[in-house]
């Protein structure tokens, strides 16, 4: 996200990959396990306008620090030394821009291998680089994403090329979009001054909790007790914590207040954003006795306004 803010990116919806991509690179992503149908629907065997034979019309490269179950779907696997994504990407940018690094290998990858890969990108009708958590959640974080986007922009001077993140949670893209159109920022916002301020590292959840700053928490459809580093999550045990969730989780079990809600996309309709920013209306297949989560949130808003008014009057 920060990388996008800083530099932008060449992107497209996944249908472009389906219809035109003849070179697909997965970097730090293991779609066979994390996004199992990405391959058949969009990026691997999907048939499209310029790819009538599907898989046969695409060359697929997997770049990762170790072999994963996705390797068997690729034409080529490039194994790089852990923590060396940035160096490898920088070498690829140099090669793209016509400079050969004065070394035999970088991050345990032979320069010739990278030269071949860069040439494939330059020759592609449409080249696509998907990158996953293996690169965004390791050392360097947004610097790595930045290097990916910069590579994409450099390559765009030679061929049609896209750089697309493999996002995880089904509507994490929606949360970024909604926050962006209402606050101007996609995450890590603070309203303490009466207007939105943005500062990742200061207002991001892990940093806030590690510094023990919040004195109360509302968790909506997330599992911080499971997903956040324990040294951050444990602060939630020390402050009043409210959880809205359809199901019992590690977080509901420790929460002070649990408000059950319908399960979006299972027991209630609602809009979610796909990883390529296309919003889709989810359907409902089960009944739930609880309200949709925006209802208790609306009630809370109304109650707090009423409490404030009472306080102002007394």
């Amino acid at each position: 996200m920060v990388a996008l803010q800083l530099g932008g990116a060449p992107a497209a919806t996944l249908g472009e990959v389906k219809n035109r991509a003849d070179l697909v690179i997965f970097w730090g992503s293991n779609p066979a396990e994390s996004h199992p149908r990405h391959f058949t629907r969009y990026s691997g065997s999907a048939k499209g306008r310029m790819n009538p034979r599907g898989r046969k019309d695409r060359y697929i490269v997997l770049v990762d620090i170790r072999p994963t179950p996705s390797v068997k779907y690729a034409d080529e696997f490039i194994q790089i030394k852990p923590g060396h994504d940035y160096e490898v990407l920088t070498a690829m940018r140099m090669l793209t821009n016509g400079n050969r690094p004065d070394m035999d290998s970088v991050g345990d990858v032979a320069i010739q291998t990278l030269e071949r890969l860069v040439q494939r990108c330059k020759d592609a009708r449409l080249g696509v680089l998907f990158f996953g958590q293996g690169i965004t959640e390791t050392r360097g974080k947004h610097q790595n994403s930045m290097a990916i986007y910069q590579f994409g922009k450099d390559m765009s001077r030679h061929s049609k090329f896209l750089t697309l993140p493999m996002r995880g949670h089904y509507n994490v893209v929606g949360s970024g979009n909604t926050m962006c159109w209402q606050t101007g920022y996609p995450f890590a916002v603070n309203f303490g001054r009466g207007y939105p301020q943005f500062n990742p590292g200061e207002f991001s959840v892990v940093d806030l909790l590690k510094r023990k700053e919040p004195d109360a928490a509302l968790i909506v459809a997330a599992e911080p007790m499971d997903h956040l580093p324990y040294e951050a999550a444990r602060h939630l045990e020390n402050i009043p914590t409210i959880v809205l969730d359809p199901r019992e989780t590690l977080t509901t079990k420790m929460a002070d207040v649990v408000i059950p809600v319908k399960h979006a996309g299972v027991s209630v309709e609602g809009t979610a954003y796909r990883m390529d920013h296309i919003p889709i209306k989810m359907r409902s297949v089960l009944n739930s006795p609880w309200p949709k989560d925006d209802e208790p949130l609306s009630t809370i808003i109304a109650r707090i306004k009423a409490i404030r008014k009472e306080e102002a009057e007394t």
Binding site: L4, G176, C180, T183, G184, R193
Partner: peptide, 26 residues
């Protein structure tokens, strides 16, 4: 995307609830 890409624009331009607006923004 234009909003996303211009955090520096939002830094200085904002509408505050403290000025009586129902909703803040940038």
């Amino acid at each position: 995307f234009a909003r996303l890409m211009r955090p520096e624009d939002h830094r200085y331009e904002h509408v505050s609830r403290e000025d009586g607006y129902e909703r803040s923004g940038t």
